[in-house]
């Protein structure tokens, strides 16, 4: 039994159908628990007051926004190398989720920035690279929409995803060179020294786990929809033949 078994759409449908209710439920529970814990059960920061509560949305959303692109990159590579259709469709399914998470990150960041830095928007490297990430998602989705032939669309978007990843990383470092910025450093890194205090860390971790489950659930659900759309096309074509 290897992972590649699920490259078969039928197997994938069976397995994802079985897993989906559980992972959706887990996502709902964890997100609700983490956000409620963060919102009701944590003290205010002595400098930032209650705005520190935005942290529980902002940071997990940001991590999903970046890692969704990473997942799309891996899925695109699998499609280009091994030609598994499910992989290409999963990459397509992940893009709107990543775009929404990028939007959540930008909106919460702007609302947080207003009282803390005195401005909604600052051309800081971290903020700016998220804006650019959002543009990459938009371009990727637009290319999917524009091409009729499904295999060509999968190929071209995969190539764009590969090239885009390289340029996204280049932009990130060019931006650091361009402006040093206001944003604080990493807050959930494994390096304990940099981290936020434990009271803030645990609820954020629970929310992050919830967001990961939410991401997986949404990608599975949307991939299932894409597979059904493919199948519908085939059925309609066969009906026309007979």
């Amino acid at each position: 039994m290897s992972l590649w078994e699920y490259a078969n759409p039928r197997r994938f449908m069976a397995a994802s159908g079985a897993v989906l209710p559980w992972i959706s439920g887990l996502a709902a529970v964890l997100v609700a628990l983490g956000l409620a814990w963060g919102f009701f059960g944590t003290p205010d920061d002595y400098r930032q007051g209650s705005t520190v509560k935005i942290f529980y949305l902002h940071v997990p959303a940001a991590m999903i926004a970046i890692n969704a692109w990473l997942m799309m990159l891996v899925a695109s590579l699998i499609w280009l190398i091994r030609r598994h259709h499910v992989s290409a469709l999963a990459a397509k399914a992940a893009a709107p989720v990543g775009l929404t998470m990028t939007l959540v990150t930008l909106v919460t960041g702007a609302i947080w920035g207003q009282p803390m830095w005195g401005t909604w928007w600052e051309w800081d490297p971290r903020l700016t690279s998220f804006l650019i990430l959002g543009l990459f998602y938009l371009g990727y989705l637009a290319l999917w929409e524009a091409i009729d032939d499904p295999d060509a669309a999968a190929d071209l978007t995969s190539v764009l995803c590969l090239v885009g990843s390289v340029f996204a990383i280049l932009s990130r470092y060019a931006l650091v060179f361009w402006n040093q910025g206001l944003h604080q450093g990493a807050s959930l890194s494994l390096d304990k020294e940099q981290n936020v205090a434990d009271v803030f860390w645990w609820p954020a971790m629970v929310t992050l786990a919830g967001f990961v489950c939410l991401f997986v659930a949404l990608v599975l659900l949307r991939t299932r929809t894409e597979i059904r759309a493919r199948r519908l096309k085939a059925v309609v074509a066969r009906a026309r033949m007979s």
Partner: peptide, 20 residues
């Protein structure tokens, strides 16, 4: 338009460094 939407984000590093 699609071409612009795709190419503009890719131009970001060149623009940053060039105008710098």
């Amino acid at each position: 338009l699609l071409l612009s939407l795709i190419v503009l984000p890719l131009y970001v590093p060149v623009l940053i460094l060039g105008s710098e």
